[in-house]
Amino acid sequence: MQRPPIPVIRLGGTGEVAAALPHLLGFRPAESVVLVSLRGPGGSQVGLTVRADLPPPGSAAALARALAARVVTDEPDAVLLAVVSEAPDRALPPVLPVGSGAVEAWPELPHRDVVHEVVLALDGRDVPVREALLVRGGRWWDYDCPYACCEPGAGTPVPAGASPLAAAAVAAGAVLAPDRAALAARIAPPDGPAAAAMAEACLSAGRVHAGRLRASGRAAVAAEASTLVVDAAAACRPGPATAGARLSDARVAEVLWALTLSEVRDRALGLALGDDAPAAEVLWTECTRRAPVPLDGPPATLLAVSAWLRGDGATANVALDRAMAADPDAPLPQLLADGLAACLPPAQLRALISETLAPDPRSAGAG
Rank of each mutant, 00 (worst) to 15 (best):
T356H: 13
D123N: 14
P55Q: 03
E151K: 03
G297E: 08
A52M: 00
Q45F: 02
L247Q: 14
A234R: 13
L302T: 05
A232I: 01
A245H: 14
D321P: 03
G15E: 11
P55T: 04
A205Q: 05
Q334D: 10
V135Q: 06
A91K: 07
V8D: 12
V95N: 10
A52Y: 00
A199P: 00
A319V: 06
V129E: 04
V282Q: 02
S226M: 09
A18T: 06
D179K: 09
A245L: 13
A268W: 00
A87D: 09
L335M: 10
P107L: 02
A64Y: 03
R350M: 09
A326I: 02
P55G: 07
P178L: 10
P94I: 07
C145Q: 01
Q334G: 08
A182W: 14
P57W: 01
V255I: 15
P238F: 07
G206A: 02
W140H: 14
L336R: 08
V119K: 12
P4L: 07
A188T: 14
H111D: 04
R130D: 15
R139K: 06
M198L: 06
R322M: 05
A223T: 14
D312I: 05
G161I: 11
E224Y: 01
V50R: 02
L25K: 06
V8L: 10
L122C: 10
P76K: 05
A219V: 14
L96Q: 13
V83P: 01
R180N: 05
L303R: 15
S248M: 09
E355R: 14
Q2D: 14
T285Q: 13
R51M: 01
E104N: 02
D74M: 01
S204T: 15
A66R: 12
A168E: 09
P299E: 04
S59Q: 13
A105I: 10
P55L: 04
G339T: 08
L357W: 07
L48N: 07
L92Q: 14
E355F: 09
G244L: 08
D338I: 08
P56Y: 01
